[in-house]
Write a protein that binds this DNA or RNA. Sequence first.
DNA 1: GCGACAG
DNA 2: ATCTTGTCGC
Length: 236
Amino acid sequence: MAHYKLLHDWNVTPAEAVALQQQLRSQIRIEPMANSPRTIAGCDISFNKFEETVYAGIVVLDLDTLETIEETGVISTASFPYIPGLLSFREIPSLLEAWSTLKSEPDVVMFDGHGTAHPRRIGIASHAGLFLNRPTFGCGKSVLVGKFNEPLTQRGSWSPMLHYGDVVGAALRTKDKVNPVYVSPGHLIDLETAIDLTLRCHGGRRGFGYRIPEPTRRAHNLVNALRRGERPDLTS
DNA sequence: GCGACAG
DNA sequence: ATCTTGTCGC
């Protein structure tokens, strides 16, 4: 089973969460990946509004064929509320539970959110990367922080996202004429590699494929099916 | 002080 | 995030 290191307690107040981010940010390493990845994991959580129960899932794919290698899901509970800038404290705990049930160890992990494109440069992808101790990056559907020029409409076009003088990520077009996704490195990876991997995770080519990259898309479908009770096999 | 604000 | 049908545009 895949493991991770519990760097700190998750039972904290919002103020303590911010203090933890300030303390952890110095440990984040933005650098080229040490090894060429063969597998990539996508993760996501789903829940019914106003309820504590959350459904967390992870899907592992082969980077070359985009075939699903493994998938897992868990039903858990999230006590921390959603607060912009503190998303990791709400989602990572349950995602780690799912992670611990994985048989394989993904080479790199994609998150539905941001990495360095965060007010304190430690979005969910970066935070999780420290716990998992492996390359991670974020691919969000909307912006938290960062200014950028609209990239050209062609798939593959991108423009840097700037925040207080730092290039924190990229607005990347994953498909012709559709809104861009926002990519940023999490830990043990650089922006260029994160962009490349995101493009490789597209069922791409001429009108096929979606805006959301396959790892996240499949994880999203998985957790929704779990929430609706359509995947009893993942529970028992 | 006002507005913005991942999922 | 989630609740939901049709509809505008390429």
